[in-house]
Design a protein around this nucleic acid. Structure first.
Lengths: 240, 240
DNA sequence: TTGACTAACTTGTATATACAAGTTAAAATA
DNA sequence: TATTTTAACTTGTATATACAAGTTAGTCAA
């Protein structure tokens, strides 16, 4: 699978945690034991364990060992980058993506600010509605720089754009900055979503960057209030 | 300051980024150059750089070098664990903390579930209102296990509880899990907050853990809709 | 001029060693 | 028996070395 030794060890240990072979509260084998099991060096094991720790799967305790944390306490652990498709699969709920708009536009002032582009450049605009259990819950407005994504189709947008970008176009998505806040709903929200009585929506602004730190996508995701939920895991640095 | 070499290098580089000595888009010195500057080994430099990368301050590009990311684009970068006091200071806005309740309680069913305690154990309950620019915006309900925090006072709660816990009690806060959602406001919200016309509040549930992975605090933070904002930085792992 | 190659850089991975520091349980001592 | 000490574990930090792999700029040859 993975060419990287430490990443494949990370994946192996992660799957053991997810399958319940390593249960919450339980100690996993010590670094030296893992060195023997995987026939590698301690530093390589430590790289894998540190990744697990950063992502909230284990807690390393000096002098004692590493214990498995209880991640399942949250029913959807979506801290980090994850696409709608991945999320829907994880929840196991019937869901559907409806492409409402798919066109190439010239950036207006708002878009120029968010995507750092000039008026000359062309932008893919994709508007999609996410339907979960028959209700139109999320309105996604995606903007891609045409420089990075030369071609898009309704079909691709209905499946998973990320899969297409990473597998077909070989774009390496590296990191994203997200911003959340609540806003009064506008005409567009009322048009596309089943808003019920709600007067506000949760807005998630997402800036997605490639490997070389170039911004290639700006997304505005508008969620119906009652269906929004976000989970975050954070470690504190001690400066001793 | 820090006993750790790599942490003190991290702090040094971070302050250079924050002061603008290293500007966004600019390359920082290569790992080998930093090895000479700090008179240390490359692995130690790499530990510092990887921390900067994980926290979204730099982007490392193979074969090229590390460039400084534009973190200032968000006006308050509070991804991760940060206390109200730290945040208010960063924003430079006049703020005040009002302690509304401070007592020892026996856990009810809800609390038993959130804090994993038995009916016999005693719990500190702290209810505080956060006032920013004269408006009562945030309602914080904190619950501490008395086992970890034997003593609390109104004075401590008005200043910063975290400072007291870390400096006085020497508790090592290690990580936290947060959960966000929107809820209809209740009687308590209306009593303590200046809610204006808003019918909903943003609820942040925060579970704080110590070094040995023991849960010692549960916090429910209730924000007025229009004043809530959250920023997140996430990296994507490539399994290649 | 153009293109291919090379050399000198960059970061990434893997290994080995040494010692520090925290934990635990058995062994030695009072 | 109760306490202290020790030895054997655990993870954390720091160093050194080697090579892989990506980038860049200059050199050389066609």
């Amino acid at each position: 699978m993975s060419e990287n030794k430490y990443l494949s060890i990370y994946n192996d240990l992660l799957s053991k945690i997810e399958k319940g072979i390593f249960k919450p509260g339980m100690k996993i084998p010590s670094e030296n034991q893992l060195v023997e099991q995987y026939e590698t060096s301690r530093e390589t094991i430590r790289k894998a364990l540190n990744l697990l720790s950063e992502h909230g799967y284990i807690q390393k305790i000096k002098g004692k060992g590493s214990i498995v944390l209880d991640v399942r306490k949250f029913d959807f652990p979506i801290s980090g980058l994850i696409s709608f498709k991945e999320l829907a699969q994880k929840l196991g709920k019937p869901s559907r993506t409806i492409v409402e708009q798919l066109e190439i536009v010239k950036p207006d002032e708002v878009l120029k600010k968010h995507l750092h582009v000039t008026t000359r450049e062309e932008i893919w605009k994709v508007v999609r509605v996410r339907e979960i259990e028959g209700e139109r819950i999320i309105l996604d407005k995606d903007f891609f720089n045409k420089k990075f994504v030369p071609f898009l189709s309704k079909d691709i947008c209905e499946r998973s754009i990320y899969e297409y970008l990473e597998k077909e176009l070989q774009l390496k998505i590296s990191f994203a900055k997200k911003e959340f806040f609540v806003e009064e709903c506008n005409e567009e929200d009322r048009m596309y979503l089943n808003l019920k009585q709600y007067t506000h929506v949760v807005v998630v602004r997402n800036y997605v960057y490639l490997d070389d730190a170039s911004l290639f996508q700006y997304t505005e995701s508008r969620h119906r209030l009652d269906k929004f939920r976000f989970v975050d895991f954070a470690r504190r640095i001690h400066l001793h």
